Each structure stands twice: as C-alpha cells, then as structure tokens.
Amino acid sequence: MSTSSPTSPVSVSRLGYVNFETPDVARLTEYYTKVMGFALVDESPQQVFLTTGADHHCVIIDKAEAAAGRSIVGYEIHEELDDAERRLKAAGLHGERRTDIGPGTPDVLVLTEPATGATLHLYQEQDPSGVRPTFDQRPSKLGHVAAYTTSTNGMRSFYEDAMGFRWSDSIGDFFVFLRCNGDHHAANFMQSDEMKGMHHIAYEARDLTHLQTMIDNLARHGYQLYWGPGRHAVGHNIFTYHKDPDGNHIELFTQLDVMLDEDKGYFEPRPWHEHFPMRPTTWEADAAAMNMWGPIPSGAIKR
C-alpha cells in the first residue's frame, strides 16, 4: 500500500527510452547497430527496438513519413502504476493505462507532455534484454534528452510538481536542467517560439578512453563531430556532438555531475568546479556556460 499523498508527485527513478520516427528504418538501424554499437533486440519492417544493456530497449525506431526525434519518452518509476495514475488524476492530469504498447513494456501509463505534445510513458520495469555489456563503442546508457518548449517555467513546474524531478541548473531564463536521480539531468528544455521538437539526445561513455573509442568509430564510418570535445560548465560533462543519418543532434559525453545527497544539495566535488560546494544555480548566458574549453560554433545552439 502506498504511503504517498494523493497530490504528491510521481516518483520517477530514471530515463528509460526514447523514440525516433524515420522514413528509412533500415538506415537508422544500421547507424545504431554498426556505428553506435547498440544491440538489436526486436524488429519488424515498421519498428525496431535497441538497447545498450539489461533493459529490453532504450531506443525505439518507428517508420514514418518524416524524420523526428523524441516523439515518445519513457520513464521508469519507483512505485506501482496504480498509485501513479491516482496521483496524476488528483493533480488534474489524465493518463491512459495501456498493455499493448509493444515488447518489453507490458504495462504502461501514457500521458501527454504539456507545451511539446510529446507522449510520455511511465512504467515500473522493462523485460530483460538478455544483452551482456561490452567494452566496444556501445554507450553505457541513454543519458538525457533535450527538447524545445515555449515555456521553460511551465515545463519545470510540470516535471517538478507532477513527475518528482528536481532542478539542477539554468542558463539565463531560457535553458533549464532537471534531474530524477543522482545524474545532473535526465531532461533539459530550451525556450523557443520558433524551434520545436527534440534539441538533442545524449548517450554516456564510461570514461574518456571509452569516449575516444566511440568517436574513432564515428570517424571510421564517416561521421564527423560538429562540436567538441569540450566541457560544459553546466553539468561539467565532457561532450561531443554529431548528427545521425536523419540529422538528429547526438551528444556523446562523460563525467557528468552527480548529486550524491539530495538533503545536502550539492554535487560531488570535482576539481573543475567553479564553487565548493557546487550547488544548483542560474548561470549567466554566455559562451563559458556552454563550453569551458572554447567557443560555440555558429548554429550549434539554435533558438
């Protein structure tokens, strides 16, 4: 029996998966399996499920007329779906219970993200993939997903009040970073009245050596970086960015800040931090917040 208040937020534990729509399923699948090293778990001519590890999937590829990223985002929760559904309803949010979503997720609570219209999936756990870890170019996990929104304040309120996320950092009044566990952010949002949809998606490398392996494999297959390596000041992760075959922006990163103790409220001390202890803050909107190591290339950050 749940001890949570009917009006308390859902308890999201981690980012689980993200969906891509593409007119060329085979091409995007080849990118994820041959270039990124993901394991293919399940497939049909219309849909493909891929994973980096124990979960059934962390990436879904769907056949569509036009390319798009982040049409669906799945989050694992700590609690029973009945409790989550009841609290969302008490907060005025409608969720639909589904058992026909697809392989790996037999029971899912489906709701719509405000402002963006993206579909959110809440689930307790996925079926196991049976895939063993490797030491090749495969990322260690899906790290975070960034999207455009017409209101960062509104999106922050939704994720904090309804989904139980915590604020990690902001850049000015137009970019907000939110966490659901110790990782600095699982979701981040940039405010824009013109841009829509996914901003970028990020996959984690274990360390710098692993990141080098991933980048070398990109080059081997003809994919070049358009930004990085560099170090973001916000989150302090070392980053690289490239585009997948559909033009989606893909970040590969390592050394992201970690919040070890929510009660104390500061990130694990690192020698590259500006403050000790390093706490959530609003950063000045300048190049240093985006890249401590150098400039921002033209067109890298579109608003």
Rank of each mutant, 00 (worst) to 15 (best):
203 Y>I: 11
263 D>M: 12
85 E>I: 04
35 V>P: 02
34 K>P: 04
265 G>E: 00
130 G>P: 01
295 P>G: 11
188 N>A: 11
174 F>Q: 14
12 V>I: 12
199 H>D: 13
203 Y>P: 08
15 L>R: 05
229 P>E: 08
153 N>V: 15
9 P>R: 03
220 R>I: 04
50 L>C: 01
185 H>C: 03
285 A>H: 08
220 R>S: 09
32 Y>N: 03
100 D>I: 08
167 W>N: 05
13 S>Q: 10
233 A>M: 13
151 S>R: 04
191 Q>M: 11
274 E>L: 14
55 D>N: 13
204 E>M: 12
38 F>G: 02
36 M>F: 07
258 V>D: 14
166 R>I: 09
242 H>V: 10
201 I>W: 04
25 V>Y: 00
1 M>G: 15
31 Y>D: 01
15 L>N: 07
116 T>L: 03
36 M>P: 06
141 K>V: 13
222 G>V: 00
223 Y>C: 03
95 G>C: 05
244 D>A: 06
179 R>I: 00
269 P>T: 00
86 R>M: 11
265 G>R: 03
251 E>W: 10
132 R>T: 14
89 K>T: 15
2 S>M: 12
171 I>W: 07
243 K>M: 15
107 D>W: 02
178 L>Y: 05
266 Y>A: 09
195 M>I: 09
149 T>N: 07
183 D>C: 13
278 M>P: 07
176 V>S: 09
127 D>E: 14
138 R>D: 02
128 P>Y: 05
172 G>E: 06
246 D>A: 05
28 L>R: 00
100 D>H: 06
43 E>D: 11
282 T>D: 09
255 Q>W: 14
239 F>S: 00
152 T>E: 08
156 R>K: 15
209 T>V: 13
250 I>C: 01
133 P>V: 06
131 V>R: 10
264 K>N: 13
28 L>M: 07
281 T>V: 15
18 V>Q: 10
259 M>S: 09
96 E>G: 05
